[in-house]
Simulated assay, not measured.
Amino acid sequence: MIENESLKQKILELVLNSDRKLSQSSIENILSSELNIKRKEIRKALNGLISEGELEYTYIFGTSYVEKSFNRPVRISSSVIVKPYNLTYNQLDSDIVIDIFPGISFGSGEHPTTRLSIQGIEYALKDQKLIHDFQNSTVLDIGTGSGILAIATLKFGIETGIGVDTDPCSISEAKKNARINGLENRIRILNPSEQPNATFSFITANLRFPDIMNLFPVISKNSKPGAPVVLSGIRPEEIDAVIDRYTKNNFKCLLTSEEKNWSCLVLQKNN
């Protein structure tokens, strides 16, 4: 029989690593099958995590989900702190703070793909200084969700950005997050059909493997020579196929990183 604390850790890992929102019933179904334990034991551990403030219930369109509590600042890279918009935080001079309004879109900094993406952005813009002159620099964030990646690139120096998403709720949330970070005049959040025909200094896409592969023509067309590209939402077993697709077509791979069975790539378009 699995110990209660070990079961709590399993639940946390499941919630954090999932690429979709999970209901209590989904968690019970997955873990009862995987661990061969009774659902009441899972409920007990889950209730403990909620009482401790590690997890919380969210309600979206009449359905309840279990999610990581976003009630404190989270450091997700050496420079970047993500925090709830209404929480005060005594930041260091070197900190870049992103305020996020908790909502239904992924992108509060808790999910490994978000952390990996922002670490990739920091690597490209701060560590490697792949963009030497930020004047007139632009970013395209494909599948923007909460808008956190577009916001992060601007906090690191990119001048203006466009985030695109097909989900109306994500578009609404990303606009709200741009506003609470004081960037509403520098970031435009659009439906893909509204995206202008332009090239960009930086591109980010935190999506799943099929989208990352299918979007290659779009990313190639919309990236300027020398533009860094950060791709996340990729499983480790998928990374070689992504690298192969991009490096055979005018991109070079600068960095691969991995966290909790998720991977991220930092690429750069050849000049």
Rank of each mutant, 00 (worst) to 15 (best):
I131H: 11
Q135I: 14
I162G: 03
N177M: 06
D141C: 08
F134P: 07
T160F: 11
I118E: 02
S172H: 12
P112Q: 05
G143S: 11
V164R: 08
G103V: 12
I118L: 05
G107K: 07
Q119D: 00
S108K: 10
L154Q: 01
D167Q: 12
A124D: 01
S117Q: 03
E173M: 12
S170D: 04
T166Y: 12
I151N: 10
S146F: 10
V139S: 15
Y123G: 00
S137D: 13
A174H: 01
P102Y: 14
P112S: 07
F106Y: 12
D133L: 10
I180W: 10
F101S: 13
I104R: 02
L140T: 10
K129G: 02
L125F: 08
K129D: 09
Q128L: 15
D165Q: 01
K176Y: 10
L154K: 11
K176G: 00
S105W: 09
I162W: 05
D141P: 05
R179I: 05
K129E: 14
K129T: 09
L149P: 03
T144F: 04
F156K: 04
D165C: 00
S105C: 11
A152S: 15
T153L: 08
N177V: 09
I158R: 12
G109Q: 02
E110V: 13
G120K: 05
I162K: 07
E122T: 06
I121E: 04
K175H: 07
V164N: 01
I171D: 08
I180L: 13
F106A: 03
G143R: 08
S146A: 15
P112F: 05
I131W: 09
G103D: 06
S105L: 08
Q119C: 02
I100R: 08
D165T: 00
I180C: 13
G107D: 05
L130D: 08
T160S: 15
G163R: 00
F134M: 15
I131C: 07
I180R: 09
N136R: 15
Q119F: 03
V164L: 06
T166A: 13
